[in-house]
Amino acid sequence: MTGIHSLSLFALLVATAPLAAQDLAMPEGDVLLTVTGAITVANDGDAAAFDRAMLEDLDPVTVKTTTIWTDGVQTFTGVPLDRLMDVVGATGAAIDATAINDYSVEIPASDWEDGGPIVAFLNNGETMSVRDKGPLWIVWPFDDNPEFQTETIYSRSIWQLDRIVVTE
């Protein structure tokens, strides 16, 4: 555990140090995601708004996994949730993630871990339309860990995500 902690701490130091500046870029395209609540970094009043280019700049990762909602192995590319939370300087204990279809779910901070959920913006290398559960989908690498194959995690795998509120 210590190893993981120190590792994630190291990753945090290396990966976020240059980005930890107050000056979060302003979105130029359509805003895909708006983060509000207990955050320290914002670019639109109290909110941090992200367009696709901004997300693509946040060192996206790609995971390979099956899901219960799709057929066959899928690749998802996106920003790890913990990194995203670092970027916005989230200080809360959880997030309330809400979708276009108004589905909403609370994801505790304990889930934001290395190897944990990513905020995917590509499915099988392609952008996701709303019809394809886009534009954003919080996906866990389900196949990597049986602990991710629970109803709780499934319920937290929110698709058609468009806003996040970091709660205290």
Partner: peptide
């Protein structure tokens, strides 16, 4: 549509 495609494709 998205919901229906989930019903069409989900395991």
């Amino acid at each position: 549509y998205s919901r229906m495609s989930t019903l069409a494709n989900g395991d």
